[in-house]
Simulated assay, not measured.
Amino acid sequence: MTQILAHRGFSAAFPENTMKSFIEAEKAGADGLEIDVQLTKDGEVVVIHDEKVDRTTNGIGFVKDLTYRDLQRLDASYKNKKWLTKEPIPAFSKLLEWLTTNTLTCNVELKNGIFPYTGMEEKVISLIRHYKLEDRIILSSFNHYSIVNCYRLAPEIETAPLYSEGIYMPWIYAQSIKSKGIHPKLIAAPNEIILRAMENGIAVRPYTVNKEKDMQRLFEVGCTAFITDNPVKALEIKEKRPRIKN
């Protein structure tokens, strides 16, 4: 059964990577979340996509140059005029604490491709273990060195490399770095790749899937999961189009 992972939460309708967006994704019926983490100047793991705060908040500057207290002063919903209440950038620990109250899967993307964020993997894994969520977390990154490091530090937590262009026999590559899944850009996930990967025991979770025809294709082929901005739309299509058995 193809799972639906809400991209940065229910980001089609709510401020991305905020607790509001995560809570609404759960209410909508998503099977899980896709979130992004970075480190503040004082070493706090926070949930935000961009290396800079400029696009998603009313602040300016790099996450790495701001303290956690600095970030808490910012509003991650200010560009959406319908929100009358401030939405802060969440601490990763706050998200994990909330996850203990439900059964959602959570794909945690380590945003360490531009800035290496020394010690990020250790901090993220320590928090996951603290909240005993090892079996519900997937660690992903475009930085595949980081993915390998995560596996070495915590072989009990699933890892999955992110990639945007085609890889020849990506299930072989995943196996070679001890990953149990692959997270390709949708264009790099044709049906034959999805099926061969899954036949070889590798989960496939493409990103970012927002068009109805693409969702229908992935449901029909029985893809492990996909990452979407709109879990409500995905669920409506899922209910209309049950999986066709091969």
Rank of each mutant, 00 (worst) to 15 (best):
Y131M: 06
G59H: 04
D36R: 04
L71K: 01
L99H: 03
Y78I: 02
V124T: 09
T101K: 14
E87C: 15
V46T: 10
I137V: 15
A91C: 10
V53P: 05
D75R: 03
K111M: 12
L110V: 12
K52S: 14
R129L: 11
S141T: 10
S141P: 08
D42K: 13
K82T: 06
I114N: 11
K79W: 07
R73W: 00
L96W: 07
T101N: 09
D42C: 14
L99C: 07
E109M: 10
E51F: 11
K82Q: 10
K41I: 04
Q38N: 13
L74R: 03
R136F: 03
S126K: 13
K123T: 05
V45T: 13
K82A: 02
E121W: 03
L71F: 03
K79S: 10
R136S: 12
I48A: 05
N80E: 13
D65N: 14
P88M: 10
D42G: 07
T103W: 01
V53N: 04
E109H: 08
N102Q: 11
H144G: 11
V108M: 07
L104H: 06
H144Q: 11
G59A: 08
L127F: 01
N102T: 15
I114F: 05
T103R: 11
N112M: 06
G61K: 03
N80C: 08
L104E: 08
W98G: 07
P90Q: 07
L84K: 14
E121V: 09
T105S: 09
N102W: 10
L110D: 07
F115T: 13
S77K: 06
D50M: 09
I128F: 00
E44I: 13
D50S: 10
L95M: 12
C106Q: 06
H49F: 09
N102I: 15
N102A: 10
V124L: 06
K94D: 15
S126M: 13
K41N: 04
V46L: 04
K81G: 04
E109C: 09
L127V: 08
L133Y: 01
D54G: 05
D135P: 00
A76Y: 00
L96R: 05
Y131L: 10
K86A: 01
V46N: 01
L110G: 05
Y145A: 13
D36A: 11
E44Y: 09
E44A: 13
P88V: 15
L96A: 05
D65A: 14
S77E: 03
R73L: 13
D50A: 09
K81A: 15
I60G: 08
R129F: 02
H144F: 12
T105F: 12
N80D: 14
T100L: 03
K123P: 05
T105L: 15
Y68W: 13
G59M: 10
L110H: 06
I125Q: 01
I89T: 01
D50L: 07
P88W: 00
S126R: 15
E122N: 12
N107S: 13
K41E: 02
W98L: 12
